[in-house]
Amino acid sequence: MSAVVVATGYGGPEVLSVIDEPVSEPGPGEVRIAVRAAGVNPIDYKAYSGAFGSDPANLPMRLGAEAAGVVTAVGENAEGPAGPVTVGDEVIAFRASGAYAADLVVPAESVVPKPEAMSWEQAAGLLLTGATAVHALHVAAPREGETLLLHGGAGGVGSIAVQLAVAQGVRVIATGSPAKHDLLRGLGAEPVAYGDGLADRVRAAAPEGVQSAIDTVGTDEAIDVSLELVEDRRRIVTIAAFGRAPGEGIALIGGGPGADPGDDIRSAARLQLTEAVADGRLDVLVARAYPMAAVATAHRDIADGHVSGKLVLIP
């Protein structure tokens, strides 16, 4: 038997439970992983919140999409993007349905090698936010020497997008509370405080103008300021402003209604991201790790929206 997290109903974190389920054997093209850490993401709590529907047929609902661990069994022809997967390999799995688990069976094609320098917690938090950051940068298309405005630079997606953009020679102006400004500077961004007067503060920091914008927070302020400062609306991308994006002619990406999932871009991003980590060009900020039994607390914390970096669960 293996511990897994399920939502037994629709609502808030109070509907979450940890239960035991039988451990499956991997079939052809599959691998089994002993999970060392699982990433926590906003889409996880939105799945059972009712935001995407409340069909009782989907209950109980397993949660999670990314995990890191050790391969304990392989099926026939178990081959991932980096080649054959074998027992004992240290790997990261994404997309991995039901990743909040002590043991996980996933298609081998969802598994990539874990960089040696990464902790389990960092590895579990790399690929969902990292692939989102790569997708956002692909759409916003900041070029070397240009200025990118990034709303929410200290969050999971934002902190990776800052590092990737800076590594490409892009100047990044990132919003965040004053308490996060030192962190943003450490990532290579120029921080500005959000709130009244944001557009003027950005103009003062970048009098030559802003050519693209990425919104990871979904506030009206983030969208309004981006529209005010970026001339080409096609180079404004949001992962959160589902209500605003369609009417404003800006790009909406991700897993929500009407969003571009960017499956091919995100799949290709997995090995790009692990290579960037291995080369020392990218670091994953882990804000907190929780035992699996504290999953409800983790979801309350991530829903609060003020986390710097990633939250992870430890089975």
Results as ranks from 00 to 15, higher is better:
Ile236Thr: 06
Gly247Thr: 14
Ala241Gly: 01
Glu208Ala: 10
Ile239Glu: 01
Pro246Asn: 04
Asp215Cys: 01
Ala206Val: 10
Ala240Val: 12
Tyr194Glu: 14
Gly218Phe: 02
Val210Tyr: 04
Ser226Ile: 12
Val230Gln: 06
Ala205Tyr: 09
Gly243Ser: 10
Glu231Ser: 13
Val202Leu: 09
Tyr194Val: 13
Ala213Tyr: 05
Phe242Gln: 11
Ile236Phe: 01
Val237Ser: 00
Asp196Ala: 10
Ala241Asn: 02
Asp196Val: 06
Ile239Leu: 14
Arg244Phe: 15
Gly243Pro: 08
Phe242Met: 11
Gly209Ile: 13
Leu227Gly: 07
Glu231Cys: 05
Val202Pro: 06
Arg203Lys: 15
Val237Glu: 01
Gly218Trp: 02
Val192Thr: 06
Gly243Asn: 10
Asp196Gln: 07
Thr216Asp: 06
Arg201Ser: 12
Ile250Phe: 00
Ile223Cys: 04
Val210Ala: 03
Asp220Cys: 04
Ser226Asn: 13
Arg234Ala: 15
Leu229Glu: 08
Ser226Lys: 09
Gly209Asp: 15
Leu227Lys: 08
Val202Tyr: 04
Glu208Thr: 10
Thr219Ala: 06
Thr216Gln: 03
Ala204Arg: 13
Pro207Arg: 06
Ala222Thr: 10
Glu248Ala: 07
Gly247Leu: 11
Asp200Ala: 10
Thr219Trp: 08
Ala240Glu: 12
Gly249His: 09
Ile236Trp: 02
Thr238Tyr: 14
Ala206Arg: 05
Val192Ile: 11
Glu228Asp: 15
Leu198Pro: 08
Ala245Glu: 11
Ala204Lys: 14
Asp220Thr: 13
Val192Ala: 00
Ser212Ile: 04
Val237Lys: 00
Gly209Gln: 13
Gly218Ile: 05
Pro246Lys: 02
Thr238Ala: 14
